[in-house]
Amino acid sequence: MPTEPQSRDTGGMIVAAIFILIGVLALWDTFDYTDADSFVFPRTVAAAMIVFCIGLIAWSLAHPIDVGSRRAQSTPRRVGLVTAMLIAALLMPYTGFLLSGLLAFAAIVWLAMYDPWTRGRLIVYPLVGSAIVLGFYFLFTKVLLVPLPTGRLFIG
């Protein structure tokens, strides 16, 4: 029976090292606080986190783990999804929620599309997408009375 290849958990150790850095930064930050009420808890937690991270690194050095094979997946699409969402969030105050939402929706449809663009899909997908965005926009602004940004660009 084939077994999973074994190796050290290098990724886990790198993340633990980054968490040690975060812990040290948190500890350093606590020395600026004026009140014991403010520093006693984050200082204790940061110290505990550093200890656990050192423990994890030591454990990982001594114990190899099973490294499963990973399926081929598209990194550009992942990056694209996050970028589209971040741009939509940053554009919101300028273009308004509706326009940035429509743009993000269109971009993510394009990113998540693996099938060929047939004429039917070219007609149906934008219509469905617009209906979803407009439906939620209406629900939040008119029913739930959430003041979604209208956009400085169009107000002047």
Partner: peptide, 17 residues
């Protein structure tokens, strides 16, 4: 291609709200 943008849009509008 419709499911992912719908959920993504819901996370955006829900978090803003």
């Amino acid at each position: 291609a419709l499911l992912v943008p719908t959920v993504a849009f819901m996370t955006l509008i829900g978090t803003y709200a």
